[in-house]
Amino acid sequence: MTKPVFLYDGDCAFCTLCADFLERRVRTGAEVKPWQWDDLDALGIEQQAAEDAVQWIEPGFVKAGPDAIAVLLRRAQWYWKPLGWIASLKPVSWVLWPIYR
C-alpha cells in the first residue's frame, strides 16, 4: 500500500453518495474505494469490520466510522481540517458514534 485507503460500503446508496462527494470535493491523497472491490486481507481488515463502518487504513494505523472520517478530514485541504480536529475530540467523537450508527 503506497497511499492511505478509505473503504466504504459500495452496496449502500448513502455511503456511495458520500464517497462520490469525498472524491470530488475532499482531496486527501487517499484511495476511496468500496470494500467489496478491495483485497481486505492485504489491507489487514476483516470483512465484518468493513461491513460495520467505513475504514481509514494506512501502514500501522487504522480508524473506523466517524474516527476514520475525522482522519480523512484532517488530511484534506486546509478548510476541512478544523472539522476533522473537532470530530477527533473525545466528547465529540463519543457523540458522533451513535449518530453514525
Rank of each mutant, 00 (worst) to 15 (best):
L43K: 03
K81V: 13
G44H: 06
G65E: 02
L7G: 00
T16R: 08
V54I: 14
F14I: 11
G60M: 07
W85A: 07
L22M: 11
Y79P: 05
W35L: 02
L43M: 09
P4G: 03
A76E: 00
K90A: 15
A42P: 06
R75H: 07
E58F: 00
R101G: 10
R25W: 15
G60L: 07
Q55P: 04
A13K: 12
Y100H: 03
D67R: 12
I69N: 09
F14E: 12
K63T: 10
D41F: 10
R101A: 13
P82E: 01
V92P: 05
L83S: 07
Q77W: 09
E51Q: 15
W85Y: 15
D20K: 14
D11Y: 15
T2G: 14
S88T: 10
L17D: 15
G44Y: 06
R74Q: 12
Q55T: 02
V32H: 02
G44V: 08
L72D: 05
G44L: 09
P59R: 14
A68W: 01
R75E: 04
D39E: 09
I99D: 06
G65Q: 05
D39K: 07
G84V: 00
F6L: 06
Y8V: 00
D41I: 10
P4T: 03
I99W: 09
W78G: 10
E46T: 15
A50Y: 00
G60S: 06
L40D: 04
L40A: 04
R27M: 09
Q55E: 08
L22N: 02
V5S: 00
F61G: 04
Y79H: 14
D38I: 13
R27V: 08
T2N: 12
F61T: 10
V32Y: 02
T2W: 14
W97Y: 13
V54C: 10
P98M: 09
Q77P: 14
Q36R: 09
G44K: 03
A64N: 11
Q77V: 04
V62T: 15
P59E: 13
T2I: 14
L17C: 12
Y79W: 12
L73Q: 07
V32T: 05
G29W: 03
A19Y: 03
P91S: 02
L83D: 06
G65P: 05
R25S: 11
Q55I: 07
G44R: 05
Q36D: 04
L40Y: 05
G10Q: 01
M1S: 13
W85I: 06
G10P: 00
W56M: 01
A68K: 02
Q47G: 13
L89E: 08
A30S: 08
D67W: 14
Q48D: 12
Q36N: 07
